[in-house]
Design a binder for these strands. Structure first.
Lengths: 201, 201
DNA sequence: TGATTTTCGCCTTCTGTTCGCATTATAGTC
DNA sequence: GACTATAATGCGAACAGAAGGCGAAAATCA
């Protein structure tokens, strides 16, 4: 499939977003308005180009008949850095060099995500086992029940489930053999949230 | 594939990063600006060299038409077909259309692979939960302990662990609430072996 | 009939290609 | 080590074709 130009990518992204939000495709006029194009001919040409390159499909002369071709809509793959290992109660061990690992775009939250390899079975009840790769979205806050990479007291980094309770924070391992940790909010710092898991046999 | 010079490696890395971030390739002018090259001819020559060495592809005289050749591009994600759902004791439900999903090359088996979505918790003790994507390598035989997609009596398709025992075959769900299945080798046909798992939160 | 999509010419800007020439590497040979 | 052929890297200018854009008219669809 042929590569896109800058403008074509912008328009394709807009189509994707519009269809996602509305459930139907925008009209030529709507696309033109979005990009300040006064001529519909321009819009039409763009769509024709996108179709020729295989990114969209159109029914001839039908209103709002633009469809995204699924292979592309499914998304590309990102190359995310594999930063190291994470285990309950131990700091992250950085991996030497700058390794990366391919992750489907559908699994990665945003572009500023990274990957850690899980050591140990502290999250076994959440179906995460030793050796799994977790995709972590880099952010500083988490909602209840999300799985987080948390920094404790400035030293320990752990993988736990995150809960806010009565003004305190409960860090819950998903392993019956381990105890939950109750800490003050000031002592815990969320480094990122797990948004995906990959495992290789 | 031929070795790269230092300069060529730098440029290839830049191309890779740019395409990753923008979804389209940089223009010659943009590449030149990044490396302080005042002449587009220089950039053009670099790209020609990279193409000759097999690292990139270009459409002739097309804007931003540089593509990284998958093998060496560092990248490496395959677009595998998402065939449908699989659950213990039920046939595969085919998904309408020809959906695909991106899978890191490291997760996919060597041969033709495909992806199924897991329905139900029959493999919960193997850390596979409802909604997970399993990457299946298409082959007809399995070793003891491997997780297989098995066809039973020509009708039922299930996801189970595979064991050969005393001339018979044991199909073991990884859920204490479910019973193992003992069958004759003639009755069971291995469709594929699970080589990877992906999960999205 | 009104809302949209298609088509037609024409224009401007962006981008890739080519040509000739100069300056380092790099590797092989005497 | 000196010498040499070759590849890599670099410059600037000229050029051609692709991409992006316009307005209006024609064609379709609902």
């Amino acid at each position: 499939m042929l590569p896109l130009t800058k403008r074509q990518r912008e328009i394709l992204d807009y189509l994707s977003e519009f269809i996602q939000n509305h459930g139907y495709a925008p009209s030529l006029e709507e696309i033109g308005r979005r990009f300040n194009l006064s001529s519909l001919a321009t819009v039409h040409k763009h769509l024709s180009n996108l179709q020729e390159k295989g990114f969209i499909r159109r029914a001839w002369n039908r209103s709002r008949s633009v469809e995204l071709v699924p292979a592309r809509a499914g998304g590309r793959a990102l190359e995310l850095p594999l930063l190291g290992f994470v285990a309950a109660g131990h700091p992250i061990e950085a991996v030497a060099g700058s390794e990366t690992i391919a992750v489907p775009e559908t699994l990665a939250g945003k572009r500023d995500s990274y990957v850690l390899r899980v050591k140990g079975d502290s999250m076994i009840d959440e179906q995460i086992r030793d050796g799994d790769f977790v995709i972590v979205e880099d952010r500083k806050t988490a909602d209840n029940g999300e799985m987080v990479i948390a920094l404790l007291g400035g030293t320990d980094v752990t993988l736990k489930k995150f809960y806010r309770e009565n003004g305190r924070v409960r860090l819950q391992p998903a392993n019956p053999a381990m105890q939950p940790l109750m800490v003050d909010p000031e002592q815990v710092q969320v480094q990122g949230v797990v948004v995906g898991v990959m495992r290789k046999y």
